[in-house]
Nucleic acid binder design. Structure first.
Length: 408
DNA sequence: CGCTGTATAAACACGT
DNA sequence: AACGTGTTTATACAGC
């Protein structure tokens, strides 16, 4: 999608989700496997890794390793990575924004957007560098891109919040303890529901509209799809149906669990979205990879702003197997705030602590288990990164040979 | 006709 | 107290 239009500079300033668009494109330009892990968090996370505990349980070491691998495989800096996840031809850099709605909005700034609230939210979140936005930023993004809402009755904000709350596709990410940087939480898209959202996006009227209005540009779709494939390939397995069903009460039923969805894309890798396809991950590593994928959320924070992934469901297993807590390694936070600050019972460890007097013990044990899983996840990610690197070099070799042949 | 997905409105709790 | 945020409930409508 093209550049964001209709956004004044001052607006950008107050819209962090948008102000880093250039950076976003950079991120997507890389598109390597580890990069995909990286994509959802600011690089700043890596900076302070030394100050943090250097235990293996600290995910920073993983970030560092993946970064190393990325740099290694990147070769020429700034060049689109040649990856099975991206077109070998070196597809252009994906960009975000409402799928060519820019043209449309000129035409009908006052007409209602053809997207449901969930899709609008999705686009807004996807547009943000961190893939996480506070509700206020979501408002701004929607307002910026769909002027219709500037004049629409204020109820739409209520609808947005309603959607965030009830739609399974969206997950709340708590801000760090003790940080008073604004109200509320961050919202991000549940990776497991991305395919569904994308499919829903495709089904929008614009997707089949004439090229004149831009429609849902294949460009946008392919970029989103590729992103999704990256996530799928890096092992983001869907949650067990049981868990998903527990996640949210209603809404988002439209977005069937990915296990029931198979995107019918021309993209060669689209089929790999099917979670039934075994990628040879052990069950525990799958769970851990989920955590790893979460870590892109939980660790998306800059040094002074750490967010935690908080599963929506309050029924999430009390064994703490769901969700990822970036700061679980230490009990410090809980010393500070036994209730996890947020007071959300849905927070796994907080939930545990509520459960009984032995909660702390259990919590520690649970966190250790999570750590184990994370280690496994890290291993899998590194493995995948290695595969990607090999493929990349093979492809580049093939390209070079191809060029030589052409010269002849 | 029933089900499902979505939109809208409203009320409430809670935190800042 | 006002406001923002998040949750929940209820209702209505459209499409299948």
């Amino acid at each position: 999608m093209g550049p964001v239009i209709g956004m004044t500079p001052d607006k950008r300033a107050e819209t962090p989700g948008v102000e880093k668009i250039a950076g976003l494109s950079q991120i997507y330009k890389m598109g390597s496997l580890p990069e995909a892990v990286d994509a959802a968090r600011p690089k700043a996370t890596l900076v302070d890794s030394e100050s943090a505990d250097d235990e293996l349980t600290n995910l920073n070491w993983l970030h560092e390793n993946t970064n190393l691998l990325t740099n290694f495989s990147l070769g020429t800096e700034g060049l689109p990575i040649v990856s099975p996840l991206y077109d070998i031809e070196g597809d252009d850099v994906p960009s975000f924004g409402p799928p060519c709605y820019q043209n449309q909005e000129k035409k009908s700034a006052t007409s209602k957007p053809p997207y449901s609230f969930s899709l609008l939210i999705y686009m807004a979140i996807e547009h943000s560098p961190n893939k996480c936005l506070p509700v206020k930023e979501i408002y701004s993004w929607i307002l910026d891109h769909f002027p219709y809402f500037a004049t629409a009755p204020t109820g739409w904000k209520n609808s947005v919040r309603h959607n965030l709350s009830l739609n399974k596709c969206f997950q709340k990410v708590e801000r760090s303890h003790g940080k008073v940087n604004g109200k509320g939480s961050l919202w991000c898209v549940d990776p497991e529901y991305k395919p569904n959202l994308i499919q829903a996006l495709k089904k929008q009227p614009f997707s089949s509209a004439s090229p004149q209005n831009g429609s849902l540009s294949p460009h946008y779709l392919s970029s989103v799809l590729k992103q999704n494939q990256v996530q799928t390939l890096k092992g983001e397995k869907p949650l067990p149906m049981k868990t998903v069903l527990q996640k949210k009460r209603s809404y988002g039923n439209a977005f069937h669990h990915p296990s029931t969805v198979r995107l019918q894309e021309s993209d060669s890798l689209a089929t790999s979205i099917d979670p039934k396809e075994d990628h040879n991950y052990s069950a525990s590593s799958m769970a851990a990879q989920r955590c790893a994928s979460r870590s892109s959320v939980s660790s998306l924070s800059s040094v002074d702003e750490v967010y935690e992934f908080i599963p929506k469901s309050s029924h999430v297993g009390s064994d703490g197997s769901e969700g990822f807590h970036s700061e679980e390694d230490t009990d410090v936070d809980y010393e500070d705030d036994p209730l996890g600050d947020s007071g959300y019972a849905s927070q796994p460890c907080a939930k545990i602590s509520e459960k009984g007097q032995s909660g702390k013990k259990m919590r520690k044990q649970t966190c250790q288990e999570i750590d184990e899983e994370l280690k496994e996840a890290a291993g899998s990610l590194l493995h995948l990164a290695g595969i990607r690197t090999c493929l990349g070099s093979l492809i580049s070799t093939a390209k070079t040979q191809n060029q030589k042949q052409r010269k002849k």
